[in-house]
Write a protein that binds this DNA or RNA. Structure first.
Length: 592
RNA sequence: GCUGCUGUGGCUCAGUCGGUAGAGCGUCACAUUGGUAAUGUGGAGGUCACGAGUUCGAUUCUCGUCAGCAGCUCCA
C-alpha cells in the first residue's frame, strides 16, 4: 500500500470512528448520519444532530474517538442485498436514499465496527481499530453543509477532522496552517497600510497610499511587458446603458451580478449597469471603424474598475471582491491567427509569473454539451490549444477538463502554486465565438469579402486585487524591491542630520526610487523599527560619518546585516538596477 | 443566500452575574541628542457596530439589521 492509499484507508476508517463516537454521545435515535469522505488534510462527516456542536465539544468527541479505538474492535465486511440494506438502515434517511440511488447491479457492502455500529461503505478499511491507534487526528471545525450540496434540502452539521499517520505529520500540517494564518493578507494588508475596507462598500477595497504605490508598480511593469507585445491599452465607461448589456447577453444571463443604476425614467427602460466585464466596451472600440485583415490581431487591453455583485457570504478579503481591476485584454483576430496569438499570450504569462518566482500549471477546458457555434471551429480551436500546450509542457503535463469550457468557446486556465504549496486559480485565456456574432463584428478579408473575427478574452494576473492578495501571502509582505511600496526608508540619527537625509532622499527620488524619511526628533531605533515593521527592503541610516563622506549605512531586510559606508552613488546604482531588472532577491553587497 | 461564530478607543485585547468602561501599543505635548527592532513623563481619545424590545436602568438579556470570519467543491 503506498502512502496515498494508506492515507485514504485510514482517514476513511477514522471517519467511521467519528460517526460512531457522535452516535454514542448523542444517542443512536438522535443522529442521522450522511456521508464521511476523506479530504486533502483529513476527512469530514455530515450529521443531523439534536443540537449544535460547539468548539467546547471537540475535546469530548476526540476523547470518545480515542476511547473507541482503544476497544480494539474488529471491522467486518459483509455483502448484503438491497432489501437487507434498506431494512438495516430503515431509520437512517440519508443512507436509505443512498441505497435507493445505487445502480441495480451495484454490490452493496456494509461494515460493522464492534457490535453496535454499522455503516454503508464500499471500503476498504482497516481490519481492526487497533491499526488506527498510532494515527494523529484533531477536530478542525464544524460548519453547515447541505445534503448533497443542495440548499433546498436538509441542513447538516459537517465535522471536519485533520488526520495524519502520526503526530509529527499532524504537527507539520498544523504548523503550515499557522504559517498560512500569519501570512493572511486580510491581516497583513491593513497592518502594512496597503488597503482597507469600509462597511459602506463591502468587498470594495480602498487602496491606501502605500498599497497604491505597490499597485502602480505592478501595473506599470505589466504595461511595459504588454507594450512590447503589441498591446494597445484603452479605457472605457464604467457604467453603460442596459441596451449594451442586452446585446452582449449580460442582461439576460448576468443581471443578478450587476450593480444597477436607475436613469430618469420611472421604470427599468433606461437603467444603466456598472460593467462586470470589459468585453462589450472593447467591442465598441473595435466597431468604431472598418477593420481590415491587415489590422488583425487587434489587442485592446484594459484595467478599468469593474463591479460584480456577490452573495454576501462569498466575499473574502482581496480574493473575492465586488470591485476590482482585471489585467484584461480583448483581442480580435482571424481563425488562422489563434495558435500564434495563444502562444504569445503563454509567453507573456511565463514572463510575468517568472518574475515572482511562482510555478504555474495549465488546464484546458473543452467543449461543453450546451456549446454554441460551429462545431468545426470548436474542433480546430481545441486542436490548436492542445498543440500549443503539448509543445510547451509536453503531452500529458497539463490537465484537461472535458466539457468544462464556456458555452462560447474553449479556455486555458493557469493556476499557480505559492511559497506554501497552495494552489490559486489565476490567469484565464478564453476563446469566444459568440460575442463577435452578437455584436455583428466584421473585417474585410484579402478577397474583399466580410468575415467575422474571433475574440480572445485573457487576464493573466486574474485581477490586480486578487493577485496582490496572493503576493502578500506569498512574500509575507516582504515584496521584491521593485514593487515594495517604499523601497528605502531613510533614518537621520539626529535632527542635525536632516539636511543630509533630505539630500539622500532627493537623490533617491530623482533615480525613481520610492523613499520615505522620518525627520522627527525621535530616537533612531524607533525610526528603524517603524520601517522594519513596514518591511522596507533597505533602511539607510545617516549621521556625521555618512554626511561627511557622502555615503549611507544600509540595513538589509531579512538579513540582520548592516553595510556601512556605501557611497551614495553606488547605492543609487544598485537600486536602479533592482528596479530595472525586477529582481526577486535584494542585493546584499554594494560594490562600485 | 444558508449554517455556525464574532463586532468594546486608530490597533491588539480585558471587563461589566444589568448600575453608561480599562490596559498595552499607536497618537499628541514636553523633556531626552541618540550609531542599527521599542528613552522618559504627562495629556487627549469610546453613544461598548446599528435599530427595536424587556427593565427603574441595557455596552451586558432578547429580537432584527449591517459588517467580518470559517464553511457550504472533495460523494457510501
Amino acid at each position: 500500500m503506498n502512502r496515498e492509499e494508506y492515507l485514504e484507508v485510514y482517514r476513511h476508517s477514522l471517519s467511521h470512528i467519528l460517526a460512531k463516537a457522535v452516535i454514542e454521545i448523542f444517542g443512536k435515535d438522535q443522529v442521522q448520519y450522511a456521508i464521511g469522505p476523506q479530504i486533502s488534510d483529513g476527512f469530514y462527516y455530515d450529521f443531523t444532530l439534536p443540537r449544535t456542536v460547539r468548539q467546547e465539544d471537540f475535546e469530548m468527541i476526540e476523547n470518545k474517538m480515542r476511547e473507541i479505538l482503544k476497544r480494539k474492535e474488529a471491522w467486518t465486511r459483509k455483502e448484503v442485498s438491497r432489501e437487507e440494506a434498506l431494512k438495516l438502515f430503515a431509520d437512517q434517511k440519508f443512507k436509505t436514499e443512498l441505497i435507493e440511488d445505487l445502480p441495480e447491479d451495484e454490490l452493496i457492502t456494509i461494515y460493522t465496527t464492534g457490535d453496535d455500529f454499522v455503516d454503508l461503505c464500499r471500503g476498504p478499511h482497516v481490519d481492526n481499530s487497533q491499526e488506527l491507534l498510532g494515527a494523529a487526528f484533531k477536530i478542525k471545525s464544524v460548519s453547515g453543509a447541505y445534503w448533497r450540496g443542495d440548499e433546498n434540502r436538509d441542513s447538516l452539521q459537517r465535522i471536519y477532522v485533520y488526520a495524519f499517520p502520526d503526530k509529527a505529520q499532524l504537527k507539520a500540517h498544523l504548523d503550515l496552517i499557522r504559517e498560512a494564518m500569519e501570512r493572511d493578507h486580510k491581516k497583513l494588508g491593513p497592518q502594512l497600510d496597503l488597503f482597507m475596507f469600509d462597511p459602506t462598500a463591502p468587498g470594495m477595497p480602498y487602496w491606501l497610499p502605500r498599497g497604491w504605490k505597490l499597485f502602480n508598480a505592478l501595473l506599470s511593469y505589466w504595461r511595459d511587458v504588454h507594450e512590447l507585445h503589441g498591446y494597445q491599452e484603452i479605457s472605457a465607461p464604467v457604467i453603460n446603458n442596459k441596451s449594451l448589456w442586452e446585446t452582449s447577453g449580460h442582461w439576460g444571463h448576468y443581471k443578478e451580478n450587476m450593480f444597477l443604476i436607475p436613469g430618469t425614467a420611472e421604470d427599468e427602460s433606461d437603467y444603466y449597469a456598472a460593467k462586470p466585464m470589459n468585453c462589450p466596451n472593447a467591442i465598441m472600440v473595435y466597431k468604431r471603424q472598418m477593420r481590415s485583415y491587415k489590422d488583425l490581431p487587434l489587442r485592446f487591453s484594459e484595467t478599468d474598475v469593474i463591479h460584480r455583485k456577490e452573495k454576501s457570504g462569498e466575499l473574502n478579503g482581496l480574493f473575492r471582491v465586488q470591485m476590482f481591476r482585471q489585467d484584461d485584454d480583448h483581442t480580435l483576430l482571424m481563425h488562422s491567427q489563434i495558435r500564434d496569438e495563444i502562444n504569445d499570450i503563454m509567453d507573456i504569462a511565463e514572463e510575468l509569473y517568472g518574475t515572482f518566482g511562482l510555478d504555474y500549471m495549465a488546464e484546458l477546458s473543452t467543449r461543453p454539451d450546451d456549446y454554441m457555434g460551429d462545431i468545426e471551429l470548436w474542433n480546430q480551436a481545441e486542436a490548436s490549444l492542445k498543440e500549443i500546450l503539448d509543445a510547451k509542457y509536453g503531452e500529458g503535463n497539463y490537465e484537461i477538463n472535458e466539457g468544462d469550457g464556456a458555452f462560447y468557446g474553449p479556455k486555458i486556465d493557469l493556476k499557480m502554486r505559492d511559497a506554501l504549496g497552495r494552489e490559486w486559480q489565476m490567469g484565464t485565456i478564453q476563446l469566444d465565438f459568440q460575442l463577435p456574432l452578437n455584436f455583428d463584428l466584421k473585417y474585410t478579408a484579402a478577397d474583399g469579402t466580410m468575415k467575422q473575427p474571433v475574440m480572445i478574452h485573457r487576464a493573466l494576473f486574474g485581477s490586480f486585487e486578487r493577485f496582490i492578495g496572493i503576493l502578500i501571502e506569498n512574500f509575507k509582505g516582504a515584496f521584491p524591491f521593485w514593487m515594495s511600496p517604499y523601497q528605502v526608508g531613510v533614518v537621520p540619527i539626529r535632527p542635525e542630520h536632516n539636511e543630509y537625509a533630505a539630500k539622500v532622499v532627493e537623490a533617491l527620488r530623482k533615480s525613481r526610487i520610492r523613499a520615505e524619511v522620518d525627520y522627527e526628533d525621535e530616537n533612531m531605533k524607533v525610526k528603524i523599527k517603524k520601517y522594519k515593521t513596514y518591511k522596507d527592503p533597505y533602511i539607510v541610516v545617516v549621521g556625521d560619518k555618512e554626511a561627511q563622506e557622502n555615503s549611507v549605512s544600509v540595513n538589509i531586510r531579512g538579513m540582520n546585516k548592516t553595510v556601512q559606508g556605501v557611497p551614495l552613488d553606488t547605492f543609487l546604482a544598485v537600486c536602479r538596477r533592482l528596479n530595472e531588472e525586477h529582481t526577486l532577491e535584494l542585493a546584499d553587497s554594494f560594490e562600485a
